[in-house]
């Protein structure tokens, strides 16, 4: 029997496909979101398709004081925890409204880092487990179009890297996922290039594969590694004049 998989931020399109990928392998699934009632149909879907037990849990990424209690209240310490919490926000709005900016920074960095810290401690004590953080290529270099989001994701990526380093000899593995463009609710209406844009189901398959193979950093579509290597290599005097 495979161990339980906890999916944080389970209402997103990516989270749904990640849950499906693990359920298909027989893992019991714990779905966590702010309003777990909204996940009733997703629970039914996983149970009907894959015949695995699924439970729903209330979880607010921004309510960091409650995170320790949330972990203690789970049916078990999960074998795998996936954090798919995220908020793109609107760059213009986040620039104009400090509260909106704080919400983007807290949702993409502070909240995920807080909950994963609690899970990491418990997994370290147990001596096993895998933590998966869904970060973003936007965190690899700040761009004018979404630098608040990008900065928060950069923080999260650095956090995951540090966590991986800390737990490497403790039996706990950390996977950083940099999905690139994905056709989700978050990117609805954006004109995305087909070659660079993954379906949520590709993310699910990539995360499952990354966990099974113990990968450290995964891009969903390999082409993104090339794209980001180039973008990161651009000298700042040139980069600052681009509109990527």
């Amino acid at each position: 029997m495979s161990g339980a998989v906890l999916v944080l931020g389970a209402t997103s399109d990516m989270a749904r496909e990640i849950a499906r990928a693990f359920a298909a392998k027989g893992h019991p699934i714990r779905l966590a979101a702010r309003v777990p009632e909204r996940l009733a149909d997703d629970k039914a879907d996983l149970e009907t398709r894959f015949g695995v037990p699924v439970t729903l849990h209330a979880f607010d990424a921004l309510d960091t004081a409650a995170h320790a209690g949330f972990v203690a209240g789970l049916p078990e310490l999960p074998e795998i925890a996936v954090c798919a919490v995220g908020l793109m926000g609107d760059q213009a709005e986040t620039a104009a409204d400090p509260e909106a900016a704080a919400r983007v920074m807290r949702t993409n960095f502070e909240g995920p880092a807080s909950i994963l810290e609690r899970l990491a401690d418990a997994m370290e004590a147990r001596g096993s487990g895998t933590i998966v953080g869904i970060s973003s290529v936007a965190g690899l270099r700040g761009r004018a179009s979404n630098y608040v989001y990008g900065a928060a994701k950069a923080g999260f990526t650095a956090y995951l890297s540090g966590l991986r380093n800390r737990l490497a000899k403790r039996g706990v593995h950390v996977v950083t996922v940099l999905p690139g463009f994905v056709r989700t609710r978050m990117t609805e209406g954006l004109d995305l290039p087909d070659r660079l844009t993954a379906e949520p189901s590709e993310v699910g398959a990539a995360v499952l594969r990354g966990v099974e193979k113990g990968r450290n950093i995964i891009y969903v579509r390999p082409v993104w590694q090339v794209v980001m290597t180039i973008i990161r290599a651009l000298p700042e005097p040139i980069f600052k004049k681009t509109s990527l």
Binding site: D13, D41, D42, A44, D45, T48, R49, F50
Partner: peptide, 28 residues
């Protein structure tokens, strides 16, 4: 295709959303 949840199965009848693929039904 965003409505692709299977909602239950009993007595040979599958309850599912309209976006579920027949290939998924066969697979499951």
């Amino acid at each position: 295709r965003g409505m692709d949840r299977m909602l239950g199965f009993a007595d040979g009848v599958l309850t599912a959303e309209a976006g579920v693929l027949l290939s998924d039904v066969i697979e499951a």
